[in-house]
């Protein structure tokens, strides 16, 4: 009876792992195919049968993307914009979140409600008025403009996430500091921020990814090829007569690998950030 139950448990575990592995296979195959194609010479990208392991792998597409197609420049652009966005967004949203989490002031509910509206409206729906705004502010075709709009667009979510984290910091700690005569700025800088490093990392990663991957806004406002970010550059690799798929996927791999690495390293913060919103809703 006992052995029967144990073998059954093992059988169930086996089925579990089998189903999960099939699923994982389907999740991974496209990436493998992408990587394989990036290593093929251009003439073989649509060969039949398609090969997941190329016969004569070549790194020509990578050197081509990096050298003759200014990919280094686009990479730096994306990196610069993403880092600046992350910095400003984390800074501004942590201050807002602190205000919402710890102070009572007139208009608090209304302002927070407005923030929630911002959380609900997908950014893409505002692209027309934002375009006109950027034009009036002289922020078209500028990387600073990208940072400005990306930061503004990430504030609502970041503030929302950080607020719920700040609320969990025991009030007693702050009250102790108040007794010692610390003002709000000191409490924010010396207590709240250091205690919230994991949460700050979480929203930082979100902001970084959102900016790194953003496509539509950059495509619409950037004209100068020297200011292109990675997603636009990749999408513009499609030729008029034929798409150089090997080049497209070499470029894609260059764009994706840092993100995947960052994700694997910061996985814990990532997941906690995702679930904060869900489990507290």
């Amino acid at each position: 009876m006992v052995t029967g139950s144990a073998s059954r448990t093992r059988a169930i575990l086996g089925v579990r792992i089998l189903i999960l592995s099939v699923g994982v296979f389907l999740m991974i195959v496209p990436f493998a195919y992408m990587f394989a194609t990036s290593l093929k010479p251009n003439a073989l990208v649509l060969e039949i049968p398609p090969k997941l392991i190329p016969h004569h792998p070549t790194t020509a597409n990578y050197t081509d993307a990096w050298t003759s197609n200014k990919f280094g420049r686009y990479f730096l652009n994306s990196l610069g914009v993403a880092i600046a966005t992350t910095f400003f967004s984390v800074w501004l949203s942590s201050m807002m979140a602190y205000a919402f989490a710890r102070f009572s002031f007139p208009g608090r509910r209304i302002l927070f409600g407005l923030l929630l509206i911002g959380l609900m409206v997908p950014t893409m729906m505002l692209i027309i008025p934002q375009f006109i705004l950027a034009k009036n502010l002289g922020m078209l075709d500028s990387l600073t403009g990208l940072v400005f709009f990306y930061t503004g667009g990430t504030l609502a979510l970041n503030t929302f996430l950080l607020r719920s984290f700040f609320q969990d910091i025991p009030r007693e700690l702050e009250e102790a500091m108040v007794v010692d005569g610390a003002g709000p700025w000191k409490r924010y800088l010396k207590l709240v921020l250091p205690l919230s490093r994991p949460a700050l990392a979480t929203v930082g990663i979100f902001s970084f990814l959102a900016s790194w991957d953003e496509f539509v806004w950059a495509l619409t406002v950037i004209n100068d090829p020297n200011k292109r970010t990675l997603p636009i550059a990749i999408s513009l690799f499609q030729g008029e007569h034929s798409t150089s798929w090997g080049l497209v996927f070499a470029a894609s791999t260059i764009a994706v690998v840092p993100v995947l690495l960052a994700f694997v390293i910061f996985q814990r913060q990532f997941v906690s950030g995702l679930t904060t919103g869900a489990l507290k809703a």
Binding site: R73, L76, G80, V81, I83, A84, F87, T144, N226
Partner: peptide, 19 residues
């Protein structure tokens, strides 16, 4: 360190425009 990175990144990002 963060501030430094931001500064460097912004410089890199705007260098193209400066040319």
């Amino acid at each position: 360190a963060l501030g430094l990175i931001v500064a460097v990144a912004t410089m890199a990002a705007t260098a193209g425009a400066r040319v």
